[in-house]
Design a protein around this nucleic acid. Structure first.
Length: 473
DNA sequence: ATGTCC
């Protein structure tokens, strides 16, 4: 593989073999994955072979090895030119994403005793870990179908939130085109008992405080100012999204044979967007996306109850983003306007100021971008910028450096908890092993990832948040 | 990520 450094923050993988376009990686040399342990650069090249891919196969500064596509991967296919959709380009955790809430409270208003009571209450009421516990136990299949079709809109309609919440959700809380009929009975079964639950892995609910503001007017428009207490929620579509991915990867095998599509990796299973299999996946994916969004809405309700019961502060929604999704969007390609299927896997949509997809009160700010760090480290709020070189996309997190297995070998969960508590971060975990798997040492340096994302022109910094307590999935 | 294997 021939890799050229184009700018300090941009590398190019030259087109060769079956690649239809080059690879473009937004990273400093220091952030590049170790090729001995992580095959993600090869995955960027593999994605470049997909039918219909345009411009380049991109990777964000937090890139690492994933299922088929790299995590941190962005790929757009031209629908009219037979462009494909690939479940591996979205990931197993469909619509995994982040929501940020701002409390009507500053950090000096949270005395140590109230802080502990708040964390205890969150620890008691936020369902997490493997299995089926939920804030909203659905009445049955009919109610779940409403969630799949209407996402957070249905949750709010049913009293789990306010109309103001929807104004600060991507797509007003629901992806269009969701079809519950494309969702298998097994996926429905898995989804019934998990709505309003964090899950496990890197998912969390964190109480944070704004430590630094880089752009006062934009922070103000987002509802943020220095020292404000916030809540960040990171979760996805649980077993339902996972099952949908599994079902449709299998369903695409005959479509690939029928269309004569060959891919360098079985995990890149795909089908033309304009094929029965492609359409069925997108309809089921949209349903999972709506489930993921409703999931964050229900966890918001639980967090609001915990705040109301302990410190009395309201929580106002700053924004909600999905960072695992494929969307049909129109972009300029080679001087023409094309309908594209844009895959973002571990990558965040970042519209520039003035984009019609923004809420009117944020039109001048650009789209809020929410990027969590790791336990005990900072998180960032950023904004979309004009001239984004990757279909209005940016990174989604710190990016894993060590495998879960490596992380568990290098630190004990109890030890990590004690270290975080000593540093003033209250910890309410689900399992010791899960905690060790998410050790900060297993991730890249979030400050460096953000510096590269900004340096590469993907987004710009608005505020830096630091953790006060974490409820870990 | 995930009832970490149907």
């Amino acid at each position: 593989m021939r890799i050229m450094q184009e700018t300090p923050y941009r590398l190019r993988i030259e087109r060769e073999g079956e690649m239809r376009v080059p690879g473009v990686v937004f990273a400093s040399r220091a952030l590049l994955p170790d090729p001995a342990a992580d095959r993600s650069l090869g995955q960027v090249a593999d994605v470049a072979t997909l039918p219909g891919i345009v411009t380049a196969s991109y990777a964000m500064p937090d890139m690492h090895w994933g299922y088929g596509f790299p995590i941190g991967g962005v790929a757009a296919t031209d629908i009219a030119a037979g462009g494909v959709v690939s479940p591996g380009g979205v990931g197993f955790d469909i619509s995994c994403g982040v929501r940020l809430l701002a409390a009507a409270l500053d950090r000096d208003g949270l005395d140590p005793r109230t802080h502990q009571r708040l964390m205890d209450e969150l620890g008691r009421t936020i369902p997490r870990g493997l299995g089926r516990r939920a804030v909203w136990p659905l009445a049955g299949r009919g109610q779940l179908e409403h969630v799949l079709a209407e996402g957070s809109r249905y949750a709010v309609e049913q009293g789990h939130g306010t109309p103001r919440d929807l104004a600060r959700c991507e797509d007003h809380g629901a992806v269009a085109g969701a079809d519950p009929a494309s969702v298998s009975a097994r996926a429905m079964e898995r989804g019934l008992g998990q709505l309003g639950s964090l899950g496990s892995g890197n998912h969390f609910l964190e109480v944070q405080a704004v430590e630094r503001v880089y752009d006062e007017p934009v922070a103000e428009a987002f509802g943020l100012r220095r020292d404000r207490v916030c809540v960040m929620i990171h979760c996805g579509s649980r077993g339902l999204g996972h099952q949908i991915c599994t079902d449709h990867v299998h369903a695409m095998q005959p479509a690939m044979r029928r269309h004569g599509i060959t891919v360098p990796d079985r995990q890149l299973a795909c089908a033309p967007v304009e094929s029965p299999e492609g359409r069925a996946y997108l309809a089921a994916m949209a349903a999972a996306a709506n489930y993921g969004r409703a999931n964050r809405q229900l966890l918001t309700e639980a967090a609001r109850r915990a705040f109301a019961g302990t410190c009395g502060a309201d929580l106002e929604l700053v924004y909600d983003v999905s960072h695992n999704l494929a969307k049909i969007e129109t972009h300029e390609v080679d001087g023409g306007s094309r309908r594209l299927c844009v895959h973002r896997k571990g990558a965040t949509l970042a519209f520039p100021p003035g984009h019609p997809g923004l809420p009117p009160d944020l039109a001048g700010s650009g789209q809020p971008v929410l990027i969590p760090g790791t336990m005990g480290t900072a998180s960032y709020v950023l904004a979309g910028v004009a001239g984004n070189p990757a279909f209005d996309s940016t990174c989604h997190g710190a990016g894993r450096l060590q495998s879960r297995h490596q992380a568990v070998r290098s630190v004990r969960g109890r030890e990590l908890r004690d270290r975080l508590e000593a540093a003033g971060v209250a910890v309410r975990g689900a399992s010791w092993r899960g905690l060790a798997e998410e050790a900060p040492a297993a991730y890249k340096d979030i400050d460096e990832v953000i510096a590269v994302a900004e340096g590469a022109g993907l987004c710009r910094k608005v505020a830096r948040l630091v953790p006060l307590g974490v409820v870990k999935g």
